[in-house]
C-alpha cells in the first residue's frame, strides 16, 4: 500500500515535469515588475493571439541576465532578450545575439534611424534620464543641469547609485568633454556632493524619497517620473536648456542558438508595429521608436518622447553604446569611491 503510494507520487512528479517540457513556449528575457507586465500584456497577448504560441518570461536585472546568457551560450534558455542598447553591445561582443534578418522585420522600415542600434539589436522604446523635482518643496525653478549645483539645493538631491553614467556624462559635457573624456567632469561632480541628500538603488526607494520630501530633486528616468505623476505626486519633469537629457533606448534581440528564431523575429516585428508601439507608449509613458505610432496628447513634447527626426537629434543626448558599456564598471567604481562614500 505504502510502496504503491510512493510509486504513484514519483510517477506523478515525473509526468508533470515531462508535460512542462513538451509545451515549448517562446521565452522572453526582460526586467521584472512593470516592464514585464507591460510587455506581457501588450506584446505577449497579441503575439499569442496571432500565432497560438504562448509566451513566457524570464525576469531579472540587467547584469545577472547577461551572466546567465553567458553560461548558457549556444543553447540559450530564452529566445528573445530585452536589454538596454549599451548592455546589448556586451551581448554582441560575446556572440550571444544572432544577427537580425531584416527581411523578417518589415516593420523595422518605420523605425527611427537612431533606434536601429546594430545588425543585432533594435530599439523598442526610448526615454531620458533628466531632472525631476517637486515645485512645492523647491523655491527656485530648475531649468538647466547647471541649476543642480546651486547652493539653494543643498541636501535636496538624490541620484541612482547603480548607474552613474548620466550624471558623469553631464558633468563632462559641462566641462567641454563627453563620455569618452569623462575625467574632465570629475572635479565638477565632486562639487555637487554638498547638494546630494541620498542615493537610491530601487524605484521604490526613489519614490519614497520623493514622496516624503527627503530628496525633492532627483535625476531619474522620465518613465518613472510620469508614473509618480499618475500616483498623484506633483513632480515636474525638466527639459534642461543647457544640455539635453541622457537618452536610454531599450532594445530587443534574438538569442544566438535559439530554436525558435522565426517566432522570435515575429515577436520583435510585432513589438515594432505601429499599433503595438502606440499601446506600449500609452502604458509605459516612453517614447515610441516607430515614427508612425500615436502618442497621447499630454505626453507629446514631454522629455523622453521623440516623434520626429529633429526631436531625436536635438532633445536628447545619445551616448556611445560601446564606450558606455565598456566604461560603466570604471564609472561605478570611481563614483562609489569618490561621490557615494562620505
Amino acid at each position: 500500500m505504502l510502496a504503491r503510494l510512493i510509486a504513484l507520487v514519483i510517477v506523478t512528479l515525473l509526468a508533470s515535469a515531462a508535460v512542462a517540457h513538451a509545451q515549448g513556449p517562446l521565452v522572453v528575457s526582460t526586467w521584472g515588475g512593470n516592464w514585464k507586465d507591460t510587455v506581457e500584456r501588450v506584446v505577449g497577448k497579441a503575439f499569442t493571439a496571432k500565432t497560438g504560441v504562448p509566451v513566457e518570461f524570464e525576469v531579472g536585472g540587467t547584469i545577472d541576465r547577461l551572466a546567465k546568457a553567458r553560461v548558457t551560450k549556444g543553447s540559450p534558455l530564452v529566445d528573445v532578450t530585452l536589454t538596454t542598447t549599451h548592455v546589448g553591445r556586451l551581448y554582441i561582443s560575446d556572440g550571444l545575439f544572432a544577427p537580425l534578418d531584416m527581411g523578417k522585420l518589415p516593420n523595422a522600415k518605420q523605425i527611427a534611424r537612431e533606434a536601429i542600434r546594430s545588425e543585432h539589436h533594435v530599439g523598442t522604446w526610448a526615454y531620458v534620464y533628466t531632472i525631476v523635482y517637486r515645485p512645492d518643496l523647491v523655491k527656485d525653478e530648475i531649468t538647466r543641469w547647471a541649476d543642480l549645483w546651486k547652493p539653494g539645493l543643498k541636501g535636496k538631491i538624490a541620484l541612482p547609485d547603480f548607474d552613474p553614467s548620466h550624471i558623469i556624462t553631464i558633468a563632462a559635457l559641462m566641462e567641454g568633454g563627453n563620455e569618452l573624456s569623462w575625467v574632465k567632469g570629475q572635479e565638477r561632480l565632486r562639487q555637487l556632493k554638498p547638494n546630494i541628500a541620498a542615493f537610491f538603488s530601487t524605484d521604490a526607494q526613489s519614490q519614497d524619497l520623493m514622496k516624503t520630501g527627503q530628496a525633492p530633486v532627483q535625476v531619474m528616468l522620465s518613465v518613472n517620473a510620469y508614473h509618480l505623476q499618475e500616483q498623484g505626486i506633483g513632480v515636474r519633469v525638466v527639459q534642461p536648456r543647457d544640455f539635453p537629457g541622457i537618452v536610454g533606448i531599450d532594445t530587443m534581440a534574438v538569442m544566438a542558438g535559439s530554436k525558435k528564431s522565426d517566432l522570435a523575429h515575429q515577436f520583435i516585428d510585432l513589438a515594432l508595429s505601429k499599433d503595438i508601439q502606440t499601446e506600449l507608449v500609452k502604458s509605459l509613458r516612453a517614447g515610441p521608436t516607430n515614427t508612425g505610432a500615436t502618442v497621447p496628447a499630454p505626453l507629446r513634447g514631454q522629455p523622453g518622447i521623440f516623434l520626429t527626426a529633429s526631436e531625436w537629434k536635438e532633445r536628447g543626448y545619445i551616448m556611445n553604446d560601446e564606450a558606455r558599456a565598456k566604461t560603466l564598471p570604471a564609472w561605478r567604481e570611481w563614483f562609489t569611491a569618490t561621490i557615494v562614500k562620505k
Partner: peptide, 20 residues
C-alpha cells in the same frame, strides 16, 4: 539591506545566481 548591506549568504547568492 536593499543591496547595500550584504552578509556572507548574500555574497553567496550574488556570486552563484547573478555572476555564476
Amino acid at each position: 539591506g536593499g543591496g547595500k548591506v550584504k552578509m556572507i549568504a548574500n555574497v553567496v547568492k550574488d556570486l552563484a545566481l547573478d555572476s555564476f
